[in-house]
Design a protein around this nucleic acid. Structure first.
Lengths: 341, 341
DNA sequence: CGGACTTTGAAAGACGCCTATCAGGAATTG
DNA sequence: CAATTCCTGATAGGCGTCTTTCAAAGTCCG
């Protein structure tokens, strides 16, 4: 059986190819009766336009913009690298990807950046702060016809097309379960360090972690969250403080970046063997600490997958093609010493 | 900057498009000097043929064959479903995928099936037994110009193009580490049930598991492996036997299928809370047992990803395009109750 | 019924590459 | 030097769709 082409449809419907095209692409007014006939022919032949031919013919460029945080956060750098790599690979498919850095922690700056994006782009992917101002900016973009996906950290209730990232509450719960099991039979305290509580992903992780911790592991008592601002030096100070304040602290969960600081503090205190340390994001630092045994578990989201997923989603939107949810679910990777790539 | 086309290259090299095409596709003899000039122009313009246009022009169909085990193994059924789904999605890209079931446990049958595949296909993906006979069949296919990827279970030293699947030794080690940590501070025995020791993936998992178990967790003693033939009923008998023989068994690692049987045995013995049970593959059965608390950890490989990866690899080969290793690494998914999708 | 407007058909030229053919010029051979 | 063989250019047609244009036919209204 040969694939149906637009010509077959035209013959079957007893109209010209031009009319079929009009129906398919809403190019001009077509009599309802004719539309119906064409649509029926399409259904009967199970006709689907050849995407390759379509893209070739349109000779169209797709432009997307990625807005990422500036700064030295290792994960964000990995994300930026992934964006650049995909950008390189995709030039040959007529997809142009621009990368912008901005201060995502400032609602002001971020929303200004978003407002500036204008209408040159077909879509944008944003690592976004959950803030009314930012939500407005996202809605504004959407309304102007620029598809927006949120990346890594979501902005619910906005008119974003899609959220590309892990389920952070679930990640927090996972961390708690592992912590609880690793510490089964022991009594003590567990510390929790977050980056900034204005980024939604951190809040959600914390929420999931506390939820499971409180209900399932009464033998462990949770210390109040400390903020480390995703900064190695600050995180190290906070961790050192925690360690000296609580000689019975036997677990640490780091919700944000700056794990190196915690590792250093743990090693300095000589308690890295005894304290179970769970953190996020596989980077050079965390990998090394995992192999060395200071970190016990890394919960990761694959930057490359996220970037590719974001692009696929934006492309689908631009091509009016459906998106396959099961393909776009970003999984929570759990790395132990034994399965790091 | 516009993308270079074959025409630009021709102008730059001072030859005709026909000649550029000859160089690109080795269509006819071209004087070395001319070849050099063309290649230089290609480099200077950073010309890359437009894959979309090329595929459109070739108007060629790609035919691939997936050879999977017959039987009721839930993971294999999921794999077959994934193949069918991709096949459906890809008809619109002129990719035809056939699915064959065969008795992969019989080297005889499997290799006959492979031999039959003939030359209608551009490539094949095979869940293969590691057996000299099968290796020969794979090499035969390769030599006849059919690209072969091994799926889920590898056949090393064969002329397969690629292995698509997880690192099973690493998966085994991961299982052991989690087992060890979950059972930290306790003393007892750990049971190990495999499907068949003639499938390489199982052997490798067992190897990794034992390696870590023996070296790192001396408090746990490993019972000899038992074979369950991936059959729920047999597995259940084996598990029940283990449970009654060893009242101090506190962990079970199931390397193969048939987890439902173990869960049933554990529950029947009333020891599902006390025994840490780690198994492979997320299916309806295992998911349910995980949520119910009988299974503690599921180590999974995503069937959809594997199928898509296999197809990408085969397509790359057919198009003579490079394959991006980092995109094709199949990850070991670890599922707890808290992060099942 | 004539003019205005709406709906359709026919066709041509992209998009970038592949494939094939034919002829002429260059290099090689005897 | 003629007869081959080898290289190369030019060109045409196709892949399936999009886009646009022009003209023809159909419909509506006053």
């Amino acid at each position: 059986m040969v694939r149906a082409t637009i010509e077959h449809v035209a013959v079957k419907a007893g109209v010209s190819v031009a009319t079929v095209d009009r129906v398919l692409n809403g190019r001009a007014a077509v009599r309802p009766l004719t539309v119906e006939r064409v649509e029926q022919a399409i259904r009967q032949l199970n006709y689907q336009p050849d995407r390759l031919a379509a893209r070739l013919a349109r000779a169209r460029e797709y432009r997307f913009c990625f807005v990422l945080p500036e700064g030295t956060n290792a994960f964000m750098i990995a994300l930026a690298d992934a964006v650049r790599e995909e950008a390189r690979r995709l030039t040959q498919e007529k997809i142009i990807i621009d990368l912008r850095h901005t201060d995502v922690f400032s609602a002001e700056t971020l929303s200004t950046t978003l407002d500036e994006i204008g209408t040159v782009y077909d879509g944008a992917a944003v690592v976004a702060l959950d803030h009314p101002r930012v939500r407005e900016a996202i809605n504004g973009l959407s309304d102007r016809g620029v598809a927006v996906v949120t990346l890594v950290s979501d902005v619910p209730n906005s008119r974003r097309l899609h959220y590309v990232g892990i389920d952070n509450a679930s990640a927090g719960r996972t961390a708690a379960s592992l912590m609880g099991r690793y510490l089964s039979g022991r009594q003590g305290k567990v510390g929790l360090i977050a980056g900034s509580l204005s980024l939604r992903d951190h809040v959600e992780r914390q929420f999931g972690f506390e939820q499971v911790m409180l209900h399932e592991y009464p033998n462990l008592s949770l210390l109040p969250v400390r903020e480390g601002r995703d900064d190695g030096a600050i995180v190290e100070r906070v961790a050192a403080q925690l360690l000296s304040d609580h000689s019975d602290m036997i677990g640490i969960y780091n919700v944000g970046a700056g794990s190196r600081g915690i590792a250093t503090a743990l090693e300095a205190a000589g308690r890295h063997r005894e304290v179970v340390f769970i953190t996020h994001e596989l980077t050079d630092d965390t990998r090394q600490a995992l192999v060395g045994g200071t970190i016990d578990i890394i919960i990761n989201q694959d930057a490359g997958h996220e970037v590719r997923s974001a692009i696929r989603v934006l492309m689908s939107k631009a091509d009016k093609a459906p998106i396959v949810d099961s393909m776009e679910r970003i999984r929570i990777d759990i790395y132990l010493r034994d399965n790091i790539p």
